[in-house]
Design a protein around this nucleic acid. Sequence first.
DNA 1: GGGTTGAATACGTATGATTTATTAAGTAAC
DNA 2: GTTACTTAATAAATCATACGTATTCAACCC
Lengths: 259, 259
Amino acid sequence: MIYLMTESALVPEGSIPLDDGSAVLTGLHAQVLDLIGLAICAGELASGSVMRIEELEERYGVSRSVVREAIRVLASMGMVASRRRVGVQVLAASEWNLYDPQVIRWRLASPGRIAQLRSLTELRTAIEPEAARLAAIRAPLANASELMGLAGKLWAAGQANDAEGFLVLDIEFHRLVLSSSGNEMFAKLNTLVAEVLTGRTHYGLMPRHPHDEALQSHVDVASAIQRGNADDAHASMLGIMQRAFDEMSSIWEHGSPAA
Amino acid sequence: MIYLMTESALVPEGSIPLDDGSAVLTGLHAQVLDLIGLAICAGELASGSVMRIEELEERYGVSRSVVREAIRVLASMGMVASRRRVGVQVLAASEWNLYDPQVIRWRLASPGRIAQLRSLTELRTAIEPEAARLAAIRAPLANASELMGLAGKLWAAGQANDAEGFLVLDIEFHRLVLSSSGNEMFAKLNTLVAEVLTGRTHYGLMPRHPHDEALQSHVDVASAIQRGNADDAHASMLGIMQRAFDEMSSIWEHGSPAA
DNA sequence: GGGTTGAATACGTATGATTTATTAAGTAAC
DNA sequence: GTTACTTAATAAATCATACGTATTCAACCC
């Protein structure tokens, strides 16, 4: 039997994000959902295996309603399917909603996170240069100025070897580019990008010291957006992406971060 | 009070896709979820408005568990948040999981679908050329051959003015390119692309007769992938995307499909 | 006026009863 | 032996109800 935390008086139900990227799960429903989701993504509950509601009630020591609600959410994520007279069946990974923020977090917390970071980085290579191009065309002046400011601070944090500060600024920079694209679908990928940046930093897939060219490219992106030069913005962002991909590749092929 | 269909003996719980793209919703849970989700996307339930569980029970004539499970799913999609002593609050559209297939379907069924098709088409412009590039590098020979076959049939269907046949083949062509990219994140966008292609056809945002260049571009993409020429595959797919975007733009600016 | 207390409220959780779809075994007919 | 039909077992789906618990709001006191 797995014991779960009871409600605290401090926070509303659901998940409350913490500064370090983790979160407190309040409410039995959210906790059970998290445990089952993690177990599936980690492969502990293999594709095809079935479980009964009653079995889950006992395992987690919660009531039917809590389990059922968690199962419904997992079903809407394509992770399980529940069928009468059979039980709750774990579906193949090809069925999962890989763009669901919760699924992304579960997979990044599982073995196989490296392969996922590779997929996500490839996705970024397609998205972010195009977002930068659109931002150069559509971004309000205020956003462009803020991007310039962020690029400056990012440069400073890189020079000062301030890894944590760098990460926060980097996330904010890319978030602002995505939202400045004026396209809701691009903007929605900001959580995905933030998870990738956090993940590659925490799992040692970044060079210990950011390369000067990477820092300069961020300035170039911001400057191109401010000038309204779409092609330059695209090219500079593409440079950032390719460098990020190469850095990750070389590190996971050689084992440890380069200097 | 809204009356819902009772279970039929023909199909399992959940949603069963139909040939025409629609689906039968079996199970009270799925029906209630669909009704509320649609109402929110259509703007009938405005952002910020609150409803009580009991109120929803009465409106749909179902029990508490059914309503609660639907609400939990909507909460995981970022569409509502339920807070004690307040009720269930509809969240702003900026919080919704726009990549959830169900959310995409609800939004395409709502007014404002044109704006969404525009966003989605812009997203395709970023994704599909890159997917074609990767497919040229990674696609198994069998996939490349199948793409060539599809491109041929697509060309024939276009010449024959067979709109329905064209749509089916077009969906299959783009699905195969995405999955041949070898990237799970790209592959997962096949439902999104299928929805866009279906939507723009059914809402009259396609030219009545496919342009010859568009048909030729599909052949070019398939051929480039088979030759392993990444840059050509990228360029040809980009051509398809830009033409699609321009066609949609000109139609919704002038009102009716061009010849 | 500001902080504290307390009651009202609506969600959260637990549980038992009942219904319904589905599977699989058993049976009869061919 | 295979097919078709019937029946029983099973587990999810639904309903109904009770109780627990956080949050809000207002009355109250200092």
